[in-house]
Design a protein around this nucleic acid. Structure first.
Lengths: 248, 248
DNA sequence: CGTTGGGTTGATCGACCTCAATAAAAGTGG
DNA sequence: CCACTTTTATTGAGGTCGATCAACCCAACG
């Protein structure tokens, strides 16, 4: 699911891939079963495909910008995406991390609610917002699926509020790792290795902390043998222990 | 919109009212235009009314309990409702405040995501979840309205994350007051008086602070002549100034 | 190479928490 | 209606967790 870490070559491969399978892209889409497209019939899928475009983004490229007219909505095919909001003075809050199968622009608002930044190489399926909206109007199943997904997102957001408002720095880190692991597990089954394609600053902005505090608490978790810090991620050494300090 | 403060009599009046207008309740519903019901035709409204029940709750009564089977969904008719989540050790996070026109149970999940507590006297319109869900299946307009509302809620949740993660205590308080004022303004127009039917502890749990910090920062705002603290609320003395320190 | 950007670690500071006392308000029962 | 208790709000003093400031390490890269 997650693309190899060497940026340039992987991106080229993907673009070739996208072109080659253009007329049957949805059929071979890796997130066909987990994304909102799962609610569509073959016919509907073809109609939707006609207005869709597969795009590649590289490390740190912006997929959408907060408070900018929302001409498009997006389905994540591969890679991780950071969703963040900015305060006028530059303070940033990461409001979510999108992984393959996630949909950006669920609320169909005229302006984007957040900035979406590619964490490494990212593949998305892009639709014009208005076209997608009228398409949704014709498929009750899709509309229901979309609503259910939005409801699920709302639940995640409320868990995130609990994390930001009422957890200590150490709990925040542990909870972040456990949650991320569980979300990926839904895609590719349980793993002990957690990929962290984002910077420490990204994690800090997700948890409402500073880089230093993130760094300190990661090494603290490692010192207690709950995790091991490895290049571009962590390895969970003591799943039960980590869940215990996470308290979730 | 907000009921008079003397609890017992008001509640009795409402119950009488609800019975008297039972067969034409929706017609006279104060939130008919602002709630999701606005998406319904007269016929649909009658069908929905057949499965609805008007209920009253008094100060601090629970409307729903977190992680409990969601047999019903609710529409707030009058009063304010506190939406909160609990950590195993008792730490609490308020994830939202619902006011008339708001809908509880948007995500149709089988279990309630939060506890809903009445702040003073509250009137709700209650529907069986499953019945409501099948009813929604028949009205595309309602489903769209529901989805749009959920999307809006998601946006509010993301703003709340920004508040919890990246704002100082003083900013949190100011932002809380401004946001609350603006939400009520959508119902009954602009006012300088903000009702605060919740306790300081509720506000603290909303902002991720302690009661003491809430109290201190309210008096600080008052000392700077931005607000005046009055019984059961505050009066905004300097709207522009308050918005400035809120930064929103 | 030198430079640059991310990450870790240490020392210090301060915003907010904790604990404690008091005040004010709201119930409660006679 | 008034004592009495209980709950809620405010204020003060002191402690702590995480922020800030600063140094350093390391890998990537021109």
């Amino acid at each position: 699911m997650h693309l190899p870490s060497s940026p340039a070559p992987a991106s080229i491969v993907w673009q070739r891939h996208a072109v080659a399978f253009n007329e049957s892209a949805c059929r071979h889409c890796p997130v066909r079963g987990t994304s909102i497209c799962a609610a569509l019939s073959e016919d509907e899928l073809l109609t939707l495909q006609a207005m869709s475009k597969t795009l590649s983004f590289r490390q740190r490229e912006r997929i959408m910008e907060e408070d900018t007219p929302a001409h498009f909505v997006y389905n994540i095919i591969a890679g991780s995406v950071l969703l963040s909001k900015l305060l006028p003075d530059g303070r940033r809050q990461v409001v979510g991390i999108a992984i393959p199968g996630d949909f950006l622009g669920l609320s169909f608002s005229a302006r984007h609610a957040f900035t979406a930044t590619a964490l490494g190489d990212v593949e998305v399926c892009r639709y014009p917002r208005l076209g997608f909206e009228t398409f949704v109007d014709r498929s009750k199943a899709l509309l229901k699926r979309l609503h259910s997904t939005t409801g699920h997102e709302l639940g995640l957001a409320q868990e995130h509020m609990m994390l930001l408002g009422r957890r200590s720095a150490e709990e925040k880190l542990a909870c972040f790792l456990v949650t991320l692991r569980d979300r990926w597990a839904q895609i590719h089954g349980p793993r002990l290795r957690i990929d962290l394609p984002m910077t420490r600053q990204d994690i800090a902005d997700y948890l409402g902390l500073t880089v230093e505090t993130v760094s300190r608490n990661l090494t603290k978790l490692a010192r207690h043998k709950l995790i091991a810090i490895i290049p571009d991620g962590v390895r969970i050494l003591d799943p039960a222990g980590l869940t215990r300090v996470a308290g979730c």
